[in-house]
Amino acid sequence: MKRFGKLVIFLVMVAMLSTACATATPAAPAESTGPFRVAVVTPSAINDLAFSQSMYDALAKIQGEMGKDKFEFVLSDGMFVVDDAAAAIRDYASQGYNLVIAHGSQYGAALQEIAPDFPNVSFAWGTAGDTFGIPNVFAYEAFSQEGGYVNGVLAAALNKSGTIGVVGPVEVGDAKLYVDGFVAGVKATNPDITVNVNYIGSFGDVALASEAAQTHIGAGADVMTGSAQMVVGAVGVAKEKGVLWFGTQADQTSLAPEIVVACQIYDWAVVVRDMISLVQSGTMGGKAYAVSLENEGLKMVYNAGFALPADVKALGDAAVKGIIDGTVTIGVGGK
């Protein structure tokens, strides 16, 4: 029975602690006159040079435009555990943030349950195209196949060996969209080029991404691309071997200024700005956004340090133009 005695003491202590310290911090109510307050929940670190960072950069940019007194944001990064993220979303909503951004397609189900409980808070989630018909939910996605296609066109033009390598994470979602767009771009430019695609089964395994890049180069690739945060391993290899690299999600030029040709970057600011103005005018949600080359939520960033031949650059620009005016059909995802 001694054990039970100990347990009782244990539990009493817990109870005492909980009652003694249960002092709720008052939640600041949302006011139209105060700053616009945004909370964002991201699955990976905000400095991942990929998906999470793209949202952080956008919010920092908006804060720069609007000023710190007009725009505040808080964040919880590394929330890859879905029900932890759900708790965070619920908590931020209950604290009266104007807009809670759930920056990961895995958060959709949680948002679907939480959003109806907080009709005065706007929620946004992505990448996804579905607002579930809930009036206070926005959705946003990226037509990442578009920049993928442009990268593919450029890659095909620069390719000499006849082989291009692609390092992907898990064969789904945004990454797969980008990769499929890239392959389409290469094939449209030169159908004879072999595009080797490999998915390493993880968003985090930098070592395997690096080895995959080595293998691609061994198989003859002289141009490579890849998606998600583990590709930094592949970029390192490309740099060492002098193989050209095309990036996506964030500007990866700083990783290897010698060999990065171009990157498709996500500028969510386009989307978030519109959400803010809608919320401020009383529309809480219901709109599904897609960043694209057309609305400049997707941008092609060329590495100024890389001597890209003018005719190749022209091909890229033509592809961008064609995608925008609809003369180029990628055949992957899209409007």
Partner: peptide, 18 residues
């Protein structure tokens, strides 16, 4: 050996359970 010889980068959870 990972961060300055094989991969030459660092990021969160570089080892990924290695």
């Amino acid at each position: 050996s990972l961060s300055i010889a094989l991969l030459n980068v660092f990021q969160f959870n570089l080892t990924n359970g290695l």
